[in-house]
């Protein structure tokens, strides 16, 4: 039986696959291949998108998008002893023009994750139906999860600048 890693290597170009860890398969890929890779894996049985995440590698000037898929297994059902249980797909996009394609056509539950990435990192997902604010109420000049967003500085400049009621009273008198 051909393992999933060999199948992936023969069907896709330019994949870097790390399978040293038990139960995990880490795949580094070009950003063009992500959609086809996800739909390929979905057909291969990895039918649950666990999460979409993002890491800000500010020194490289890249965002790393992370898609984690696993299989909906039931109880003691075994999914081929040799296969890995979770697959982590990592791809890098430019930090300056941060845009990517939505994967909602393949996995519907990617919607809130991509919405959150849009809000927290400022990544635009093309084809996403509602990229409206999810969590935040205020406008931040830099999206807050980016590494160059200094939280303590921000707190001192907004909440710290608001005077107490006593100060306001004295100021008016």
């Amino acid at each position: 039986m051909v393992s999933l890693k060999e199948k992936l290597l023969s069907d896709f170009e330019g994949l870097k696959i790390d399978d040293r860890e038990a139960d995990r398969l880490f795949i580094d890929t070009q950003k063009e291949a992500v959609l086809s890779l996800l739909s390929y894996l979905k057909k291969a049985g990895y039918n649950h998108l666990a999460m979409v995440s993002c890491t800000d590698w500010i020194d490289e000037g890249k965002f790393e998008l992370v898609y984690i898929v696993n299989a909906y297994l039931s109880g003691d059902q075994v999914f081929g002893k040799k296969e890995k249980k979770c697959i982590v797909i990592r791809t890098k996009i430019s930090r300056q023009s941060a845009r990517f394609m939505t994967v909602m056509e393949i996995f519907e539950n990617a919607e809130p994750y991509e919405r959150e990435m849009h809000e927290m990192f400022g990544i635009d997902f093309e084809g996403h139906p509602r990229l409206t604010p999810l969590m935040l109420e205020r406008d931040y000049k830099i999206p807050p999860f980016r590494k160059d967003f200094d939280t303590l500085n921000y707190v001192n400049n907004t909440f710290g600048k608001i005077p107490s009621i006593e100060q306001r009273k004295e100021g008016l008198k």
Binding site: M135, Y140, F149, T151, Y154, V155, F159, I162, S164
Partner: peptide
């Protein structure tokens, strides 16, 4: 005064303001 969230960008630091 914000407590353990003293540096959180989304929680206010003193309510009595």
């Amino acid at each position: 005064n914000g407590g353990m969230y003293y540096d959180s960008y989304n929680t206010i630091t003193s309510l009595d303001k």
